[in-house]
């Protein structure tokens, strides 16, 4: 664990046993599957919810850590891997490949998929799609538009959980000039 990681888990505020979180997420996914027509719709919904969470989570993150401004995609990715995951989910993440516009990140553990097995008919379901949304929403708040995909998923037989992130563009900050 990096030293940043240690700091992160201590400043993150109240900790809870992740079982409650895991099981609640499971209940949510199950309900979405019942309510929405197809697993693809569920993916979209999860992504949307994730984005909303990410938008708020980034505030919490910036408030609690002393992160300096991430100047580029690489720095942002490293911050997420070193501090973000540790702080919020209590897990370690490692950046395995990194370029200016793309990176891959491996999670050593993923509390969201504890106790989960996917039946075959749910193949199209991307169970952890919430995570993608969270990262996308969070980075959008710091002026980066990214695309996040789950490239390896233990629920689908892979060994590790891996996220693939791609930078689409830097968003210029827009100030609300019009309110005079």
């Amino acid at each position: 664990m990096s030293s940043k990681g240690k700091v992160a888990s201590s400043v993150a505020g109240e900790r809870i046993n992740s079982e409650l979180f895991t099981l609640t997420y499971g209940a949510l996914v199950r309900h979405l599957l019942l309510d929405l027509e197809s697993p693809e719709e569920v993916n979209k919904q999860l992504d949307r919810m994730g984005q909303n969470i990410g938008v708020r989570l980034v505030d919490d993150f910036l408030a609690k850590t002393n992160t300096t401004r991430c100047r580029n995609f690489k720095e942002a990715v490293k911050t997420i891997a070193d501090t973000g995951f540790k702080m919020f989910l209590g897990i370690d993440a490692k950046v395995t490949q990194i370029g200016d516009k793309e990176c891959k990140m491996v999670l050593n553990d993923n509390p969201l998929i504890d106790f989960v097995e996917l039946p075959e008919k749910l193949e199209p379901l991307s169970y952890c799609n919430l995570l993608c949304g969270v990262i996308r929403g969070a980075l959008e708040q710091v002026s980066m538009k990214v695309e996040v995909l789950i490239s390896k998923d233990p629920l689908k037989g892979d060994e590790r959980f891996e996220l693939h992130m791609k930078l689409l563009e830097y968003i210029n900050e827009e100030y609300p000039f019009a309110d005079d």
């Binding site: 809870i16 409650l20 979180f21 997420y25 969470i53 989910l89 209590g90 919430l130």
Partner: peptide
């Protein structure tokens, strides 16, 4: 009981 996570996560969810 495995890991812990931040309460914020649960709250936001």
């Amino acid at each position: 009981r495995r890991g812990e996570c931040a309460e914020t996560c649960f709250d936001l969810l």
